[in-house]
Design a protein around this nucleic acid. Sequence first.
DNA 1: TTGAAAGCGCTACCAC
DNA 2: GTGGTAGCGCTTTCAA
Lengths: 356, 356
Amino acid sequence: MATGDQARGAVDEQPEDGRRPTISDVAAHAGVSVTTVSHVLSGRRPVSPSTQAKVRRSIDALAFRPNEIARSMRSQRTHTVAIVIPNIAHVVYPVVARGVNDELRPLGYQTAIYDTDGDPRIKAEVLQAVTARRVDGVIMFGFDMTSADAAVLEEADVAFVNGGLNAATDGPWDCVRSNQPAGMQDATRHLVGRFGGPVAFLGGMPGDGPADIRESGFRSGMAAAGLEVDERLVRRVPYSWEGGRHAVAELLAGPVVPRSVVCANDLIAIGGMAAARDRGLDVPGDMAFTGYDNIEAGTMVATTLTSVESYPNEQGRACARLLLDRISRGYSGPARHVGIDTDLIVRRSSTPRDDV
Amino acid sequence: MATGDQARGAVDEQPEDGRRPTISDVAAHAGVSVTTVSHVLSGRRPVSPSTQAKVRRSIDALAFRPNEIARSMRSQRTHTVAIVIPNIAHVVYPVVARGVNDELRPLGYQTAIYDTDGDPRIKAEVLQAVTARRVDGVIMFGFDMTSADAAVLEEADVAFVNGGLNAATDGPWDCVRSNQPAGMQDATRHLVGRFGGPVAFLGGMPGDGPADIRESGFRSGMAAAGLEVDERLVRRVPYSWEGGRHAVAELLAGPVVPRSVVCANDLIAIGGMAAARDRGLDVPGDMAFTGYDNIEAGTMVATTLTSVESYPNEQGRACARLLLDRISRGYSGPARHVGIDTDLIVRRSSTPRDDV
DNA sequence: TTGAAAGCGCTACCAC
DNA sequence: GTGGTAGCGCTTTCAA
């Protein structure tokens, strides 16, 4: 059969000397200049069809792949974007990273994920590493970004976007923020509207996520509903199942038992529901709950959990778009701040039986 | 106060022309040759203390950071390792990535995570990209790696390790495998030993994870326990809560109701338990379950789930170590295959009440 | 103990 | 339509 020609085209004709073929190997093989090879590769200059064909044949024959490092060295572009996050094992960050990747890959950019383990020292190292490696842009997600961080990036002349956690005050750089106060407020009003008070708030520990911002959302939700906050029902606990379980157990032993419990994340809520159930309470009949993050586990528990969805994928995409504006669309205007709205996903933990 | 000197040392004295300082800027500033600067940086050649001091002062003054791209261009090493995974949003992969990172970072390597979205076309692209960017090594995790993949890597002369899914037959390259058959077998024997038959197996869909390998583990567990497999109780369902719920609902409507249910992952098990509970069954009183993966949700459900822990972090670390042997410790011997054992984490779903 | 200079593989400016 | 060649910023001979 006549399989010979095409098949042979892809075969490495070069003596295998361990060295990858370079552009000048191709030029020599095709009998043209490196300039010409470069131009058939880039298409930045017309090359006659016959020469093109020759060159392409040589490229195939030698299995030539341009060395991106050398390319970057000249062009000062790496077509790589770094996303720096505190902890890849945390629920939301992988989804954010996917969003970034989804937006970037079609445009020929690679996304490299860097994990700092929530350690500022490692963050600094990573920042040095990515700037030294000359990535085209950096997405800092889930950090309260400091001016020092920004200075490192600016000095290295690499574009960046900050996303994720709401900072006390956003710096003069591009930001993507989930509208968490509104999310908490929605949850609070929803719960109060359906079940009334007393209302408890189980917040996360400060420094381990957006603790304060969610509490303030709760408070404004209460204000909007015209209710006073009972400070005895406001607790800061670890962002964990155990934290929620413990807190609800304590509330149940306390002077005021809440009718509604607004939780700063789903783990707290799920733990809280478990504690309520352990004491023989019905959820939501005796005590209603909302969570935050809309994790999968919330759909798998006996009483499915009403939760705030913050669309981390979309947050990632938004970061990527802001960054692309700067690194490939030439935007160099003032910093932009984009907000991503949340949605309340209502499930059984806040749905009176009659409504089912 | 005498803060002047140190503070000023870190200040950029160079007129800000937008260009980052290079090694020759430092040389000029210090009044030495670039060679000397290079050697104080690398320590590969003795430099007189006074010269060293001069150079270091200039480095600080100019805030010089060596350009890693240029460095890589000469040295052909990037000190970057890529880990390629099918889906960063899947439970286990982030943990694997952390394991890799934990092992690599102390040695000065960066870990860049690449997500293929489970798409072989994207996998090929990523492989091309990663080799063109000349990473020092690649960890392919969670793929049934093909010889074609291996060929790409080998031709590019980049070291690699395959980890995660058990392939039908491992290729002639370094592999890290979780000992899944033994894990399933343990779970099966555990369940049978405590509750006996009939025993059901709810496996995942082929092509969407290690479906066959887990089923074969189940079968050998049954054989070890001296029980026949009732084929009516062996089902392949999606690796999801809904898949498990549906399957158990069907089993309950069928001719044989299982006493024990071995599930190929935790989602299936949790969904299955929900279905059992919906029909008024007690878990484990009427029907006992085991899962696989030991996800967090398994500790948050009403009846906590017995599950197989496969130590993905350790799998990642093992991959990293094998890779390091090749890229920095000069190992070039034959392919090595390392297995990571699993443990059965016993919880309430398989613990008779008396035992609690 | 120090320097000059030749590249690493590529792009782009100039020339023809 | 095509080619020569000067760098990108660094490391590493070779020479002093």
